[in-house]
Design a protein around this nucleic acid. Structure first.
Length: 215
DNA sequence: AGATAGATGTTCT
DNA sequence: GAACATCTATCTC
């Protein structure tokens, strides 16, 4: 694993930029979480930009900040480099890294990655995973493998027990594309919010969102 | 091997 | 109610 920039000052400065510019450059970065059970590190292979309504000419109804600040999305209105973790679908967590200048509010959703350290612990946390490449091949899988929960929302991803290493050299082949299956008026399906490392086996496979039946 | 259905429960509109 | 997820089970090809 090629080491890169880890100085929190420099990393935070980098994260102050536009998430759509940061996204292709953060691919390959390594996020580490050291828990009492041990460290787990993930090399990011897929991220998705979420823009605050005032930061973009493209409406983004998919963003949690689309409707303004709430108790849940408060970290997104804070300084860059902090975690925004939310609970979704009654059983999963998804982790974002806040970026843009403080108060933006925008973030990068960590959609997928490859476990590069602590695979044993990651496997314990992901008993359903049958393959190495599937340990973090999805936003909720990634959060689960790293052991992230809503208890971690608002915590600094650039300070202990976390660390974030930027890649020394940008990923060779970065692809981008729209989200799919996004419902809602003005749908944000027509803009490339999503970035991933081309041909990386750990990138999540896309399925259109399916409507759920009521109980 | 791929597609589909059902279940799970928090947060916001 | 609806939500950009995941797992398991159960079909079909």
């Amino acid at each position: 694993m090629e080491k890169g920039v880890s100085d929190p000052e420099k990393v935070r400065k980098f994260l102050e930029g536009d998430p759509r510019l940061i996204a292709p450059l953060i691919l390959g970065a390594v996020l580490t979480h050291k828990s009492e059970a041990g460290p787990v590190a993930v090399r990011l292979t897929e991220v998705e930009a979420y823009m605050g309504p005032r930061d973009s000419e493209h409406p983004d109804p998919g963003s949690h900040t689309f409707g303004g600040p709430t108790a849940r999305n408060a970290p997104m209105f804070g300084p860059p480099g902090f975690l925004y973790v939310y609970f979704t679908y009654g059983m999963h967590y998804c982790a974002n890294i806040v970026c843009g200048p403080g108060g933006s509010p925008s973030a990068l959703l960590l959609r997928a990655g490859e476990i590069v350290e602590g695979e044993g612990l990651a496997t314990l946390r992901r008993p359903a995973s049958k393959a190495h490449k599937d340990l973090a091949s999805g936003p909720a899988r990634l959060a689960s493998a790293l052991g992230l929960t809503t208890a971690d929302t608002g915590r600094d991803a650039l300070a202990s027990p976390f660390s974030l290493w930027l890649p020394r050299t940008p990923a060779a082949a970065v692809a981008s594309g729209p989200r799919v299956g996004v419902a809602g008026p003005g749908g944000s399906t027509d803009y490339p919010w999503r970035f991933w490392i081309e041909d990386d086996p750990t990138v999540s496979r896309y399925k259109a969102a399916r409507p759920r039946n009521r109980a």
